[in-house]
Design a protein around this nucleic acid. Structure first.
Lengths: 210, 210
DNA sequence: TACGGCCCATCTGTATGCAATACTGCGAAC
DNA sequence: GTTCGCAGTATTGCATACAGATGGGCCGTA
């Protein structure tokens, strides 16, 4: 028997397809087609779909299966502050002791971001690593679970987040300020910048969405 | 076809069984037995189990099925503040306009709680209604989803919450103070009491858990 | 031509079947 | 006496099969 259930891999794969639009917003998910395409049967596929519906990345329409929720600017406006507050909470609940080793490591990742920006690479993967590192010491697994469930929803709207180099540079600066605040032991300042970082991302997103 | 998928009912039923201990903490879930007992096939049952595992009320052990997580005092200590902060957040994000009609209704439910306390009834159902009402105007469905997913986890530890009449009376008073603060438009005070209400519940829980 | 009802293909929701792994009990060896 | 190994059973994970609902097109009628 597989040591990793099929549904886990399927959740990952389907998440990717929702994020990159191969499963289009508003479209219904045809279980038979998708199962054939992925080379699995409908059973583990449905299990994955149900998991994704629980996280809000799909919605279940009783009798009509699953569908990808349409894009909704309101939803983005609610998701960004939500993730912001959740991350800030995770930060507040990380003990100063655990936090001590982080700033240097965070700045190292921020350096990577700066280099990626110079090369014109995609920053989102590095940005993700930075935030994962920031939260890695939080002792509340349930909060981390909620964050993990919510971020993919947000990523649907994030496609053009780092589109502008100006915003990217600004964002890297914010990341560095967060690390600096942590070094000073100034947790409120760190959370404040963190929340602002997310909210600003939303603002730039709104600009592109016109 | 049923307008409501079987798995929804199953999720509800299994949640109940986990909360009342019919599915004991630490025990494995036998899919065949449980399916027979519930009069359904394994397919929708497994779908329900997966949904519950996503919410953290069960854990999935690859190759070994699902099991009810053991009780863990640490978990309770992390869940209560989490729900407290999430509810406070929901409150902060509810517009004052929407909030205006709430205090009277909240106090009405608080009256019910007081009456139930006098009669010696169980308060948890009424308490749940009070909190649901408090959050009912929050415009962020994702936050509400997270709260809804997290509260059942907490309820596992809540059995003896309202055990002491003294604490129950105190809690009702806190509920009234929250409504009063809302009437005054003093949102920070309302959140503060709300958070304290949850944290105190945890403190009393800790006392009984020895 | 527009509208409403019926029929059929398609798809979901549920049940059952099958293969491979994990647990249990017993026996043997140290 | 304890531990290791093995065989049989139980149980999971996945695949397939079946029943009922859904949606769309076609025809008839106003």
């Amino acid at each position: 028997m597989a040591r990793t259930p099929l549904r886990s891999d399927l959740i990952e794969e389907i998440t990717t397809r929702v994020l990159d639009g191969r499963l289009a917003a508003g479209a219904r998910v045809n279980e038979v087609h998708l199962a054939r395409e992925l080379g699995v049967s409908r059973t583990p596929l449905r299990e994955a779909l149900i998991g994704l519906a629980d996280r809000g990345l799909l919605v279940s329409a009783p009798g009509r299966g699953f569908l990808v929720p349409p894009f909704d600017p309101d939803e983005a406006r609610r998701l960004y502050p939500l993730v912001a507050e959740l991350e800030a909470l995770a930060l507040r609940w990380t003990s100063p002791l655990e936090l001590a080793g982080l700033p240097d490591a965070l700045d190292a990742v921020a350096d990577e971001m700066a280099m990626a920006l110079d090369r014109g690479d995609d920053l989102s993967e590095v940005d993700e690593r930075w935030h994962a590192l920031l939260l890695s010491r939080c002792p509340n697994p349930h909060l981390l679970r909620l964050i993990g469930q919510t971020k993919p929803l947000l990523k649907r709207y994030e496609s053009c987040y780092f589109g502008g180099a100006a915003r990217a540079g600004e964002s890297i600066g914010e990341h560095r300020r967060i690390a600096a605040a942590l070094r000073d032991g100034d947790l409120p300042a760190a959370s404040a910048v963190l929340v602002r970082n997310w909210v600003k991302a939303l603002a730039y997103l709104g600009k592109d969405e016109r």
